[in-house]
């Protein structure tokens, strides 16, 4: 095998998701003349933003070998809390935002406490939180949408004529996730714990404490996603973001992370979220029915992981 072939293969292997995204974009721009317009692409960005922000948070958890099923519910709860504290309780919006973020983080901490100290499997602990957070959102809102404070709703606007704020928030959160994963103690500990929890513990990493940080980050990111989603709609809805946790997990996995832990990158997750959004947008432009879209997206998820698995086995 010549070295150039080897290099090309390993580049593809490392960036399989990115290659898939490029292929998808090229194919869609050939199939639909509307696809490659600035307006449409920014629209895709806005569509991707909420999923991507949730997925960045989920990346932390998945890198540690855990899973967080509660992020969609936590997003909805955080948004409801913001809207309620500002609009109903009359708190100033900056304070309401802080409270909202704190609620997201608190949900994550509860998850982590159940997992790290209660020894519940992450699937069960966060499944419980999925129900609890959604229920609390419904209780607080009494089942109806609450208007977001105007100042926060600007998050759904654009900067200048073009640049949507959700896209900016997505990129910033992605940058933060990348820095945390690559540069900080917390991030490096996540990889060690996901790679081999016992080896990490015997190397002096305080595993329980690091899990608290991990799930708290996931909760915090979910709160940001919830606020962005509510701003776009100008109101917080208790049923918002239902099922988004699965999209988030799909994005992380398409991006090359392994559910068994130890692997995953913020950039991969970003690409994974973009693939999902581009696919939905493209299928809409091609007038594929919403029912078929679900089938296509399911197939794409299976393919992405299948290719990854085959590649690993080949090595």
């Amino acid at each position: 095998m010549s070295s150039s072939v080897f290099l090309r293969r390993s580049w593809l292997a490392e960036n399989g998701a990115l290659a898939a995204l490029v292929v998808l974009v090229v194919a869609l721009s050939l199939l639909s003349s509307d696809f490659l317009s600035v307006t449409n692409l920014l629209n895709v960005g806005v569509q991707a933003a909420v999923t991507a922000i949730l997925a960045f948070g989920s990346t932390f958890v998945i890198v540690t070998g855990g899973i967080d099923l509660s992020v969609g519910s936590v997003a909805a709860l955080s948004a409801i809390v913001l809207a309620w504290t500002a609009s109903v309780a009359g708190l100033p919006w900056p304070l309401a935002t802080v409270v909202s973020l704190a609620v997201g983080v608190a949900c994550g901490l509860v998850n982590a406490a159940l997992i790290a100290y209660g020894k519940l499997p992450p699937f069960i602990a966060t499944l419980a939180m999925l129900g609890i957070a959604r229920g609390l959102a419904l209780v607080i809102s009494q089942g109806s949408p609450i208007a977001m404070p105007d100042a926060v709703s600007h998050l759904g606007d654009t900067i200048g004529t073009y640049l949507p704020v959700p896209v900016v928030v997505m990129v910033v959160m992605g940058g933060i996730a990348a820095v945390i994963l690559n540069r900080t103690y917390a991030g490096r500990a996540m990889y060690a714990i996901g790679g081999n929890e016992e080896a990490a513990r015997l190397s002096g990493i305080k595993v329980s404490r690091q899990k608290l940080i991990t799930y708290a980050l996931s909760g915090g990111f979910a709160a940001v996603a919830g606020i962005v989603l509510a701003s776009r709609l100008a109101s917080a809805q208790p049923q918002a973001a239902a099922g988004y946790e699965l999209d988030a997990i799909a994005a992380v996995v398409i991006g090359g992370a392994s559910l068994s832990g130890g692997k995953g990158r913020a950039l991969g997750t970003f690409v994974g979220a973009l693939i999902l959004a581009v696919l939905r947008n493209g299928l809409n432009l091609l007038s594929v029915s919403a029912f078929w879209q679900q089938v296509v997206i399911g197939v794409v998820i299976a393919l992405a992981v299948l290719v990854d698995t085959l590649r690993r086995r080949g090595m």
Binding site: A192, G195, N196, A199, A200, G262
Partner: peptide, 21 residues
Amino acid sequence: KGQGLVLGADIAENLGLVTLR
């Protein structure tokens, strides 16, 4: 393998585990 190493991580990462803090 079960307790000493993070098998999927690289050599530098494993050597630096204890000194990470």
